[in-house]
Design a protein around this nucleic acid. Structure first.
Lengths: 209, 209
DNA sequence: AGTACCCAATGACCACGGGTCAGTCTATAA
DNA sequence: TTATAGACTGACCCGTGGTCATTGGGTACT
């Protein structure tokens, strides 16, 4: 192994260790409460070094939580491959997404954060592509199910698959927003699981003939 | 008029002028992009004076945008008082809320922001009460409609009015989040009005017998 | 009129956190 | 042994939210 390749490898190691330190801190304390200095300390490097590998705290944040995207995608693909009915699959996909987000708040926050003007201005293209692609796939999964349902004559003909996917996705994120930030707003902390089930039930019933 | 009362009045004037300057700037440039210094300048006072009337930028923000709450409440009350059918009223309430939020992004951002850990920690009780109360009324309006629908035998008996209200509300905010922050995420900027209509259509159909 | 006093208003100042960069240190190459 | 590359450092910069000792102008009392 040449010196150059070894150096390359070491750099990847460094990068990774910073990423891991960052991810742990973000998951533990959230974005706002985590300082770049802390991340540097946890990764046993100086703050300057962090900026050698990442251009901003934002980029670091998104990069650190990115792995969740693949996990969600895999879960969905797995569900779609089963021999459940179309409707069952739809509900399962919805609930799997929701459950993952409930268990990994920072992952969810990323997907939300990503839509702020802020995020999209200062983030490298590759990251934006990555998140956009993930969202698009997520929507396509659901839209695909709607089309399947229409072929089987289960679903109202006038329903636009993509619109349904969008609405369903945003219903999920809307309730998640409420759930993830805690009881808040005087809304009873209540059994969110139940709420999610009722939501997808409503939407599915609305889509069926 | 005693000196004391005149002083009192002048203080209210000051407070109000700061509030107006703040509101204008927040609506124009958003929360992050507006500095307290700018607000002070616009209100022809010093930064210190701003903190004489408000304890934090957060409180100032919420206070400045608060008037929107009454407006939304009035719109809803007005709709509920008409002789439209229950279903019509439900759709109208949903769309009125959505339309107001689309036209007053900062108002919407407030309602969203209010759910962050951050906001609830450092805000005076009175403000929290105010926002909580507003949200609660909003939900009660919708829940009331569901009950009306159930009495008329239009709506599925098993449907929990409060749950339906919550889900509908969060569907609205979920899509709004997407719409208000711009096209983002590769989702076509598209005709959001249409999306909102399809959403409430789906939810209502899901609720009907 | 003169003086004491009150209190709103001020703006210099602080703390803190994201981001920078001139300089150092180390490992390889000559 | 020395020269070079480039990874790493941490003191420093700057913007911004928030503070507080000081000021100034109006009021009331003598």
């Amino acid at each position: 192994m040449s010196v150059a390749t070894r150096r390359e490898k070491e750099k990847l190691e460094r990068r990774k260790s910073i990423l891991i330190a960052a991810r742990d801190l973000f998951y533990e304390k959230g974005y706002q409460m985590t300082t770049v200095e802390e991340i540097a300390d946890a990764a046993d490097v100086s703050k300057g070094t962090v900026y050698l590998y990442f251009t901003s705290k934002d980029e670091l944040y998104v990069s650190a939580v990115l792995e969740g995207f693949q996990i969600v995608d895999d879960m969905m693909t797995e569900i779609l491959a089963t021999d459940m009915s179309t409707v069952e699959k739809g509900k399962a996909v919805f609930l799997a997404f929701v459950e993952y987000c409930m268990k990994n708040r920072e992952y969810f926050r990323i997907t939300q954060y990503f839509m702020s003007e802020n995020a999209r201005k200062n983030l490298p293209h590759a990251l934006i592509e990555s998140v956009s692609g993930h969202t698009a796939r997520l929507l396509e999964h659901v839209a695909g199910l709607v089309e399947e349902g229409k072929r089987n004559g289960l679903i109202v003909d006038s329903l636009d698959p993509y619109a349904f996917a969008l609405i369903t996705w945003r219903t999920a994120t809307g309730i998640l927003d409420l759930a993830v930030v805690g009881e808040s707003v005087g809304v009873p902390a209540g059994p969110y699981n139940e709420l999610f089930e009722q939501a997808i039930e409503l939407l599915v019933k609305g889509a069926l003939k």
